[in-house]
Computed example of a mutant assay.
Amino acid sequence: MMLDLSTPQAKLGFVIFAGLIGFFLFFPVYWLLISSVKPNAELYLTRPTLFPESFTLDHFRRALFEGGLLLQLGNTLFVSLCSAVLNATLACYAGYSFAKYRYFGRKPIMLLMLSAQMFPFGLLLITLYPSFTTWGLLDTRGGLIISYVVFALPVATYMIYSYFSQIPNELIEAARADGAGDLRIFHTIVLPISIAPVVTVVLYSFMWSWNDLLYSLTLIVSEDKRTVGPGLLLTYLNDSKADWGGAMAGSLLASLPVIVGFILLQRFFIQGVTAGAVK
């Protein structure tokens, strides 16, 4: 049943409801912004202020030059880019195989891969930790990259599979009739028309890796390999201190790369998400 917004009462109710949702979503962001520019004396007042009474950039200076944030951002960028590219590459090949080839065990294998999403993050980590210890991948960037691929690959594969299933088989058969091999068809015909879902998978994998805390906190113990999530937690919020101003400034700086990347690529992201919705 469609919602009737023709009456003033319905419009007012809709505006109030939308305002509450907007407040719930954006007030934490606003509080992050104002807390990052408040001095420590104002941050710890008994009655918090909704607008900064004084303004400072000292938290940003300390986050950039004293808290090791630049090193942590570099580690996070490297790990996130590698895991996103590797995840997208594997998802493209697996999704194309499930969508365009018919072989024994195709559906059970795909369902088995998707079933990995039913397990909590921690349970997968429990199985990865002893394996990485045995293989010598603990406290390495390679091990962290593999852990991200393990979690993100099932969803990425299904997203790519949904798009590849819509590509007409006649297009592939025509290329085969012209003498093109399977790899050439995939690389020169299928991939060029699949930019949107591939970008979507890359963004999904990148954002998941960038925002991770549990895996990076458990699998990485060296300070020179530490990523942003554990870095902010252990630097500003630990047993000995709680520097909320520095944590807010560091969190804001750490969010900027993902925000900028999403703004630049949101058109492809939306196209990729909706590509498999309607056939």
Rank of each mutant, 00 (worst) to 15 (best):
F206Q: 07
A91I: 14
F17Q: 11
L256P: 01
Y101F: 15
F206I: 05
R267N: 09
Y96I: 11
G276D: 06
L70S: 09
F186D: 04
T7I: 10
M113D: 04
T140E: 14
N169Y: 01
I145P: 01
F23L: 15
F24N: 10
I21A: 15
W244P: 03
F206R: 07
G22I: 12
H59N: 12
L153C: 02
T274D: 03
W135I: 13
I263P: 02
V37Q: 09
R62I: 04
S54D: 08
S36E: 00
T89F: 15
P154K: 05
L144G: 04
Y215V: 09
T56E: 08
L125Q: 08
L203V: 03
P8I: 10
P197A: 08
N75D: 09
G231V: 03
G105D: 05
L217H: 01
M2T: 14
H59K: 05
A63Y: 07
V85Y: 07
S83V: 12
M113K: 02
V79N: 09
L5E: 09
P257M: 06
I160K: 00
L256A: 06
L5K: 06
K11H: 11
L86H: 12
G122Q: 13
G68M: 09
P108E: 10
L203D: 00
L111K: 06
G272M: 04
P197T: 10
F55N: 12
G95E: 10
H187G: 05
V199E: 05
A10W: 02
R141T: 07
R47F: 15
L137R: 10
S54N: 09
L32Y: 14
Y101S: 04
N211P: 00
L232G: 05
V199N: 05
G142A: 12
Q266K: 03
F164K: 01
L183Y: 14
L33S: 08
K11N: 12
W135K: 13
Q72H: 13
D224R: 02
V278S: 13
T89V: 15
